[in-house]
Every structure is written in C-alpha cells, then in structure tokens.
C-alpha cells in the first residue's frame, strides 16, 4: 500500500481531543455534522439510513465542536486535502518540556500547552510565535498580540531528557509492574507523563474539581443502603406496610409435553 493511502485515512477526531473535551462522543459527532439530506425514517419509498453529508473535514487548531471549526469547514467550501504522517504511538502530552528544533526559537525549551493530534501539531508556550494585530480601527491602531504557531511533532520538536535537559528520542517500554512508560534513549531514564495532561474543559485535575450543587459527593455515593433480607420484594413491602394475607392460594401445576422434557 502506498504511504499516501495510509495518510489519507488519518483525519478523524483524535483520542486526546475527545479526552480533553470531556464530552460524549455522540455530542462531538452531532456538533460536527453537516447533513445535506437525510431520508426520513418512515415510508417504504425511502431507503433506510441514506445520508448525504460531509465526510472529510479540515482539522485546524480549533476544536471540532466549536464555531471556529464550523467556519473552517463552511458548507459548500473546499479546502485542499492535508496529508498527515501517521504516528504509531503518540508521545507528546500537555505540560511536557520540549526543545524547538527549527525557526528563530531553535534550541529553546518550553512547555507544551496545546495539542492537535489530528495534524501532528504541538504548541509550545511562548515559543515559535507570530504577532497579530487585533481590533484595528480607523482611528485606533489596534493591539499587538503574540500567538503561538503550531510545530510538527515528527520534525520540529523533541522531548527533553530530565537528567541533562537535552533533546532525546524516546521509546515506549514496560516497567516491572507492567506500567507503560516513556524512556529517554539518551540516558535510559523514564520521562513521566505530566499532571497537566489530566486537564479537561471541566477541571485541571480531578482532585481539585469544584463540586457543583447537582453533583453527588463521594460519601453519599459510596454509602451502602441495601440490607439483604429473606423474601421477595413484594413480601418485604407487605411486611413494611403491615399487610397480612391469610388466604392460601390453590396449588397449580405445569404440565410439559414429553418432547420438551
């Protein structure tokens, strides 16, 4: 198979994006959907499940459920196909210390603060930036804003070895406890996955999540209120309500045909 064929299969919503959104997958699908025509459910004249909709999306730096993403993929618009190099194991996470290998910030190190796995992109805090003028009017010059530009994971960025702070290649290995870790090939040291990776739209880390009035607290959730007792559910209800029944039902039997026995 040609490499381009593989690369064409790639652009779908990535795992890391779904994880960050903290949304149900079905919601993301629905938010992205651009249905031109869908057959109604009823009626014999309609073929079931026939849909005409957009299948190929352009993934930029915006999240798929946002309005900006919709603007990138405006109905009726066309964008040239982007080929993305397939990566077997994604090994860059939010909060990782990386060194930039290209551009004017070459050799500088910084923390990853944004990931677009669909495009193999990584944004490094304060590095590889451009300046944008925003809010410019006739009588107002506007504001200069510093914006990070994406860096390709396969070419432009390398993870930093924690022991000597130099860029290395890494490998995924297993510890003796069966845990899967990243190991630096430079010094054979484990590069732990940072806490920032746990961040989602709803919380930074689970432990510091601020509980909302409609959230069930752990103490209430873990409490066991079930006590096993003798008798069926109906019998227990009768006992609790003080209902007594002295009539004895007639005996009934089931007769089976020989074949069934």
């Amino acid at each position: 198979m040609r490499l381009t064929c593989v690369m064409r299969c790639v652009p779908q919503v990535s795992k890391s994006t779904k994880k960050y959104s903290n949304l149900p997958e079905s919601y993301i699908e629905r938010a992205m959907d651009q249905i031109e025509w869908q057959n109604p459910d009823h009626g014999p004249q309609y073929v079931k499940g026939k849909v005409i909709k957009r299948h190929r999306f352009y993934f930029g730096e915006h999240r798929p459920w946002t309005y900006e993403f919709f603007k990138d993929n405006a109905p009726g618009s066309y964008k040239a196909e982007v080929l993305v190099e397939p990566i077997k194991d994604w090994s860059f996470f939010k909060g990782d210390l990386v060194e930039v290998l290209i551009g004017k910030d070459k050799g500088k190190q910084g923390l990853i603060n944004y990931i677009v796995e669909e495009r193999n992109w990584v944004f490094v805090e304060g590095l590889n930036c451009k300046f944008e003028v925003k809010g410019k009017l006739k009588d107002y010059p506007g504001m200069l804003v510093k914006v990070e530009k994406p860096l390709l994971v396969t070419r432009d960025v390398a993870l930093v070895d924690p022991s000597d702070k130099k860029p290395t290649k890494i490998e995924w290995r297993y510890t003796e406890q069966g845990e899967r870790v990243r190991v630096s090939l430079r010094s054979e040291r484990v590069i732990p996955i940072p806490i920032m990776d746990e961040e989602t739209v709803d919380y930074k880390t689970k432990s510091v999540y601020k509980e909302q009035p409609k959230d069930t607290v752990e103490a209430d959730l873990a409490m066991v209120t079930f006590t096993p007792a003798h008798g069926t559910f109906q019998m227990q209800i009768m006992e609790a309500m003080g209902i007594q029944e002295h009539r004895v039902p007639k005996k009934s039997y089931w007769y089976y045909l020989e074949e069934r026995c």
Partner: peptide, 13 residues
C-alpha cells in the same frame, strides 16, 4: 442525597 450527576472527584467504585 443522590443527585443527577456524579462528581469527578469520586474514584471508580
């Protein structure tokens, strides 16, 4: 005391 949602703080039970 049970409410419609479960807090993210609760570990898997």
């Amino acid at each position: 005391k049970l409410k419609p949602y479960v807090s993210y703080r609760v570990p898997d039970i």
